[in-house]
Simulated scan of single mutants.
Amino acid sequence: MFASLLEQLGEAGRTPSEVPAAPKTPEALAEALFAVAAGTGAALFSVWAAEDPAEDGGEVEGSEPGTWINAGITFYFIAEDAPDRVGLLGGERVPVRQPLAYALYGPLGQALSAHAKRGADPKWPGRGSVSFPAGAADPDLVFRVSFRDDDLGTWTTAQARSRETRKAFPSIASLPLAADASAFLERYFRELDKALFNGQLVLLTGASGTGRSTTLRALMDALPDNVNALAAVEEPKGGAVGTIGMVRVGKELTLAQAVRSFLRQDPDLLFADEVRTLEDLRNLCNGALTGHGTVCVVEAKTPEDGYAWLTEAMPGLPLLPLTVHHTRDATTGTFGMTLHETKPTEDGTAQQLVPWAPPAGAGVPTPHVGVRPANPDELP
């Protein structure tokens, strides 16, 4: 099987820079797959199994009558986008598939789980991580490994993240935000707080050059693996990002056009960089009010200015945004961030922005149960 995989990669012009020794055990095969992915420049690979009525599958006892279970390993390579590309970035994904005996699927899933140290981070029980080269202080690649268990076994997807990608998509914890606010915001997106899908728009405010776009990408990076997210950005960084569909907006494709297209695809979450017009903001508000988690960058000197623009776009509607405000000290160049929430005034006749404070007895946000699971082998 491994020899056949190498042959297929060679036919696709993707011969590994260094060919691993032929593996004799599932554990050795798990390690070899990461070496092959690194050596061929694969964006990701998946080890999968699915019931299939096709006659070229392998019939397995206990499956539905007339069905077979196919298993395989798929490597994905992303064709480089033209600088002026309009539309989905990294949209041309070239697969190289190798059939896998279903009897090996279970043991290989267990070996991959062990190799990637699945669940080592309690925040991500369904994730693991593999560095390449192993043990490097600043590895060339860090594979984010996601696991999905079902009746057939463990479906594994490993996404290669280069230094450039890791820098472009930092963790929320690395941002200049107070620790309690940072922890809340990270949980808010990792656990997909239900407020995201009940109309709570997330505004990233501040002047240009204060780190708003970096925060936008950090929020994308905090998402769990089972969401369908679409992002519209002016200056893409870090390459294609897992299952987040990203488009470049500008003269050829306006933000309003992109958002309208996004909504027709019914994503779980929308991300938009540099909202410049009331029409853009209105479209995003409509997305938030129709059940799509929505995050956008707005140029505003103060959080109140951002909120005022929001109410101008949607007058008379009770919008209660969560606002992340960005600043930069003119003298020292130091970046800062503060978190703000919207609450009723004392007389209850209006809404106002106030500094965010941990609610009394606050726990982990309630996960949103309506999010559709994504198939890692069918990326957007």
Rank of each mutant, 00 (worst) to 15 (best):
L5Q: 12
L5P: 02
E7S: 12
A12W: 10
R14L: 05
V19E: 06
P20C: 07
P20T: 10
A21D: 14
K24M: 11
E27T: 07
L29Q: 13
A32L: 09
V36A: 03
A37P: 02
A42E: 05
S46I: 07
E51Q: 14
D52W: 02
P53F: 02
P53M: 03
G57Q: 06
E59D: 05
V60N: 00
E61Y: 06
P65G: 00
P65W: 04
W68D: 05
G72Y: 03
I73L: 10
T74R: 15
F75R: 05
I78K: 11
A79H: 13
L88V: 02
G90I: 02
G91I: 07
V96A: 08
Q98C: 13
P99L: 03
P99K: 04
G106Y: 01
Q110T: 01
A114F: 11
A120F: 11
A120L: 14
W124Q: 12
P125K: 12
S129P: 00
S129K: 11
G135F: 08
A137D: 14
D138P: 00
P139H: 13
S146E: 14
R148M: 10
D149F: 02
D151P: 00
L152R: 14
G153I: 00
T154N: 01
T157M: 09
A160T: 05
S162E: 08
E164F: 07
R166H: 05
K167L: 12
L175I: 03
P176I: 00
A178D: 12
D180V: 03
E186W: 05
R187S: 11
Y188A: 06
E191F: 06
D193N: 12
D193L: 08
L196V: 01
L196W: 09
N198Y: 03
V202Q: 07
S208C: 06
T210W: 05
T210G: 03
G211V: 04
T214C: 10
L216V: 03
A218H: 04
A218L: 06
M220K: 08
L223N: 04
N226G: 10
N228H: 12
A229Q: 08
A232H: 08
T243E: 11
T243R: 13
T243I: 02
T243H: 13
M246C: 14
R248I: 00
R248N: 06
V249M: 05
G250R: 13
E252N: 15
L253M: 14
L255Y: 11
Q257L: 01
V259I: 15
S261W: 10
L263P: 00
L263R: 15
R264C: 00
Q265L: 13
P267Y: 09
L269D: 04
D273E: 15
D273R: 05
L278W: 01
L281G: 04
L281T: 02
N283G: 02
C285I: 15
N286Q: 13
G287C: 01
G293P: 00
T294D: 10
T294M: 10
Y307I: 01
A313I: 02
P315W: 07
L317H: 12
L317P: 00
L317I: 07
L322W: 10
H325D: 05
T327D: 10
T327L: 02
R328H: 04
A330C: 02
T332A: 09
F335H: 13
H340S: 08
K343C: 04
E346L: 14
T349S: 14
Q352N: 03
Q352V: 02
W356F: 08
A357S: 15
P359S: 11
A360T: 06
A360D: 13
G361C: 07
T366I: 09
H368D: 12
V369D: 14
V369C: 05
R372W: 01
E378L: 15
